[in-house]
Write a protein that binds this DNA or RNA. Structure first.
Length: 444
DNA sequence: TTTTGAGTTGTTCGA
DNA sequence: GTCGAACAACTCAAA
């Protein structure tokens, strides 16, 4: 055997050095390791990132480049990776698997590299359980969350891997600033900068704080005025943390741990849905919802929803939190989504796209999966007749009005607009519209 | 093999 | 004021 050639490690949704199986395997192979990230906005199967995600990506890559020599390239993977292999004389390309439509890119690339005599190997890193490994007794994927998660939890969750002692290889890199991932005119990212610290260090700080202190308050996670959620979703989305690291930091530490870890379960469940339905962001999982009579949204109404001027305080608070910070409290997401989809009868795809553009944690599986959950068209979804009443929700979960006051200080004053929709009448109309879906079931 | 009960996040109505 | 029913339809696991 000759001296080991360089290995390319192609990072995608795994912007971390710790618990990175591809990086560990590359190190064990023996040669220098060239770490590469591609900005691929052209290959089929790639969903272009939204604005908030582009901001996060810039920060995260910037943080990573301070801890390891990172090679940045732009273009379609199927061209750029083989070119980089030739350029660096690499004998192998390793990566951690992804599970959406883009996996067809990976499959084609793997074949091409192997045809060229280059070792190409993918690894299990970014989900606790790969989708094809959790099936019912009949070998079918689960369609109901609880049995899915129960079955998944029967297996062990491997321990996270340490950062290996890497001998880094090098190649020319593009400049991150040239990718223009950050907003300029206008710079709307001030609220994001105040709120987040992207990158592996920031992710671990957040995880540690949550495991040591936040978990004790997690039973109050439904109250948006209380800081009781983990705020780890964006770190997981970009793979600055692996779910294995989160699991082992939290599991068994507190009575609230299982409830929190079931949220990782929903991440896994949605990933499994996307694995089977790569067009999850555009197509109803339950196809009878194709018959639903969505209305063409009035641009004024849509604009009011997007920018937090609906005249419904809890919804406006959430939409303004989103616009300012790139996140929204989980419960408020449901309420804001319910208003758009059910009271306003606007197609869930329109709301999904807005969240895709504005959320720092916008995830290819979880974002459309959760919108379809709210709309009723998803797997194990909320039934259509379950229409949130945002006034009741505010009274129940923000009883002192702390959250609403923080984001909508003019609520209750003459400056605050009247509601853009009558909640009672629109609820009735929504239930009537749902009759179409029921009829579609019968016709099937 | 068949049956039965339970299943992320809710609201309204009428007794 | 409280409480159960109704609002649908279907999947899965346990008995």
């Amino acid at each position: 055997m000759t001296a080991a050639s360089p290995t390319l490690v192609w990072l995608r949704d795994d912007l971390r050095l710790a618990d990175n199986p591809a990086l560990v395997a590359a190190t064990e192979r023996g040669g220098p390791v060239v770490l590469v990230y591609l900005l691929d906005e052209v290959s089929r199967g790639i969903r272009p990132l939204g604005g908030a995600s582009r901001w996060w990506l810039h920060q995260s890559l910037s943080a990573l480049a301070e801890t390891a020599p990172l090679v940045l390239r732009r273009g379609p993977a199927e061209e750029v990776i083989p070119a980089l292999v030739a350029e660096t004389d690499a004998g192998a390309v390793f990566w951690n698997r992804r599970y959406g439509a883009s996996r067809t890119i990976d499959a084609a690339l793997k074949q091409r590299l192997r045809d060229d005599g280059v070792e190409a190997t993918s690894f299990h890193a970014n989900l606790l359980f790969e989708p094809w490994t959790v099936t019912t007794a009949q070998g079918e994927p689960y369609r109901v969350f609880t049995p899915f998660w129960r079955a998944a939890l029967e297996r062990p969750v491997r321990a996270p891997l340490p950062v290996p002692a890497v001998r880094w290889g090098h190649a020319a890199s593009e400049r991150l600033d040239d990718w223009a991932l950050l907003p300029t005119r206008p710079d709307w990212a001030a609220g994001l900068r105040e709120t987040w610290m992207p990158g592996e260090h920031g992710a671990h700080d957040r995880l540690e704080a949550f495991a040591e202190r936040g978990l004790a308050d997690y039973h109050r996670r439904d109250e948006p005025g209380v800081e009781a959620t983990s705020r780890l979703s964006a770190h997981l989305r970009f793979g600055e943390l692996s779910p294995f690291q989160v699991w082992h930091a939290v599991e068994g530490r507190h009575a609230n741990a299982d409830k929190f870890l079931s949220e990782l379960g929903w991440r896994e469940f949605n990933a499994g849905i996307l694995f089977r339905l790569p067009d999850l962001a555009t197509t109803n999982v339950k196809r009878q919802y194709d018959a639903f009579p969505w209305v063409e949204p009035d641009p004024t109404v849509l604009d009011a929803w997007r920018h937090g001027r609906t005249g419904i305080p809890l919804v406006d608070a959430g939409m303004r939190e989103l616009w300012h910070t790139g996140t929204m409290h989980n419960r408020v997401r449901m309420v804001a989504a319910s208003l758009l989809v059910k009271n306003l009868l606007v197609h869930w795809r329109i709301g999904e796209q807005w969240f895709w553009d504005t959320l720092v944690d916008a995830d290819e599986a979880s974002n459309p999966g959760n919108w379809q959950w709210v709309a009723g068209s998803g797997l194990d979804a909320a039934p259509y007749f379950r229409v949130f009443n945002p006034v009741l929700q505010a009274a129940r979960f923000d009883p002192d009005g702390e959250y609403v006051r923080r984001w909508v200080p003019e609520s209750g004053t003459p400056d605050y607009p009247e509601p853009i929709v009558d909640l009672g009448a629109s609820r009735t109309a929504a239930l009537a519209a749902y009759e179409r879906v029921k009829a579609a079931v019968d016709r099937r």
